[in-house]
């Protein structure tokens, strides 16, 4: 059984994270990778509020990204919506309250999102002069790792905001 969440708070968080992505995220690049806060939110809402919320959050986050990016229009909408839905469908199978599990899940779903993006992108844009390994080691793995590390600081804040922390008697 999932908790309820207000749409307003989802869209507010997405807008705030979009502003962060547009302005300051580039300044905290490590090894040329930047964390994806919007993807992190999609994974969080899918994980704790189910596939339906994950799908909607992914769709909205992707659409916002597509509007302000020069990426193929719609590609983020599709891939983030699929990611949000997948996270939500698979979430009952995990003990998601553990920080280590959360990090591992964020890494896995970030990889999933990026690989899905790569596949759609190669179907549509047909860039052949950059090999898959260049994308994998230059972008996909570093960005997924960085996003999963960032989840250590963001997930606890969101969990406490939505009262999702496990009660002591269950620990």
């Amino acid at each position: 059984m999932y908790h309820k969440v207000s749409r307003f708070s989802i869209y507010l968080l997405l807008s705030a994270s979009l502003i962060l992505q547009l302005t300051v995220i580039d300044y905290i690049k490590i090894f040329n990778a930047k964390p994806d806060i919007m993807l992190l939110l999609v994974i969080f809402f899918g994980l704790f509020f189910g596939g339906s919320v994950g799908l909607e959050t992914g769709f909205a986050a992707g659409l916002l990204k597509d509007i302000l990016s020069v990426d193929i229009f719609g590609i983020n909408t599709l891939t983030l919506a699929i990611t949000g839905l997948t996270v939500g469908i698979l979430s009952p199978k995990f003990f998601k309250e553990s920080r280590i599990t959360q990090m591992a899940l964020v890494f896995a779903f970030a990889l999933f999102f990026m690989l899905a993006h790569y596949i759609f992108n190669s179907f549509i844009s047909k860039i052949t002069y950059i090999s898959f390994s260049e994308y994998l080691f230059g972008l996909i793995i570093p960005a997924s790792l960085y996003t999963s590390f960032i989840s250590v600081t963001i997930f606890p804040i969101l969990m406490s905001r939505y009262h999702l922390e496990e009660k002591e008697e269950f620990l």
Binding site: E56, G62, L63, I72, F73, G74, T77, L78, A81, F120
Partner: peptide, 26 residues
């Protein structure tokens, strides 16, 4: 739920397909 999933995913695919209109909106 299935209808919602289908609607959202079809909308995302439609956005990709209607690239010139989408570009103008963007």
């Amino acid at each position: 739920r299935i209808v919602k999933i289908l609607v959202v995913l079809s909308a995302a695919i439609l956005i990709i397909l209607s690239s010139s209109a989408a570009r103008l909106i963007r």
